Computed example of a mutant assay.
Amino acid sequence: MKSKTQMYVVTAFAAAIIAVLAQISIPLPMGVPITGQTLAVGLVVTILGTKYGSLAVLVYILLGAIGMPVFSSMSGGIGVLVGPTGGYIIGFLAQAFIQGLYMDKFGYTYVHAIISNLIGMVITLAFGTAWLKVALSISWEAAFMGGVYPFIILGIVKAVAAAYFGIIVRNRLLSQQLIPSLKY
Rank of each mutant, 00 (worst) to 15 (best):
Q99A: 11
M7S: 11
F144G: 04
L58K: 06
W140G: 03
L173V: 11
A56V: 09
Y52S: 11
L28W: 01
Q23Y: 07
S181I: 13
L154M: 14
Y102F: 13
L182G: 14
M103K: 12
V45G: 00
T129G: 00
F151N: 08
L125W: 07
T35W: 04
Y184D: 15
F97E: 05
V111I: 08
W140T: 03
V32F: 07
L136I: 02
I114H: 07
Y110P: 14
F13G: 14
T5K: 13
V10Q: 12
I98Y: 02
M145D: 13
F71D: 08
V9R: 11
I119S: 04
I90C: 06
T11M: 11
G31P: 00
F13A: 15
G67R: 05
L154F: 12
T50P: 13
S137T: 14
Y108A: 05
P33E: 04
Y60H: 08
M145N: 13
F97D: 06
A135H: 08
A130G: 12
L43V: 14
K51D: 05
H112K: 11
L28Q: 09
L81A: 06
K183Q: 15
P180E: 14
P33H: 01
G31K: 07
F97K: 09
S175W: 03
V59R: 04
F165V: 12
D104R: 14
R170A: 07
R170T: 04
I26D: 06
V169F: 14
T50E: 09
V111F: 15
L58Q: 09
A126V: 13
V32A: 12
A15E: 06
L182Y: 15
K133A: 13
A162W: 02
F92C: 04
I17D: 08
M121R: 07
V134P: 03
Y164P: 02
V80C: 02
I115T: 12
L125Q: 03
F13K: 10
V111L: 15
L28N: 05
M103R: 10
G77T: 10
H112L: 06
A142P: 03
M68P: 08
I167S: 05
A130L: 15
A96Q: 06
L48S: 09
K133L: 04
I89Y: 08
I138M: 05
T109M: 00
I66H: 10
T35M: 04
G42V: 11
L101P: 01
V10L: 12
H112N: 13
I98L: 13
Q37P: 09
D104M: 08
G147E: 03
F71T: 08
T109K: 00
A22K: 00
I167F: 00
L63M: 15
G128Y: 01
A135I: 00
R170P: 03
I153G: 12
K183G: 13
K2C: 12
A40T: 10
M74V: 15
A159Q: 03
I78A: 07
A162K: 03
Q37T: 11
T109R: 00
L55R: 00
L173S: 07
L132T: 09
V9Q: 10
P33Y: 01
F127M: 04
